[in-house]
Amino acid sequence: MQELRIDMSACVARGLCSEVLAPRLGRDEWGYPWAVDESGRGTTRMPLVAGEERAAREAARLCPVRALLLTRVTPAA
């Protein structure tokens, strides 16, 4: 499975990604993007469902600080 991961240490909250990936990617009260999981919790990982990959690639390309990463799901360190 692919997922979009947000490097929060790089993100500068310009919000381009959430425009491309709305409503799956929202923004918090400080402007930083978040993916909302089933429990309503904001996270930095957005598992991609069918048909989302293109938009995710576009978001990663648009991010001015390259804070978005498309990865295969790997076990945590």
Binding site: M8, D28, T43
Partner: peptide, 9 residues
């Protein structure tokens, strides 16, 4: 807490 947890590097 819910808006902060899990969202750092």
């Amino acid at each position: 807490c819910q808006r902060v947890a899990g969202r750092g590097a």
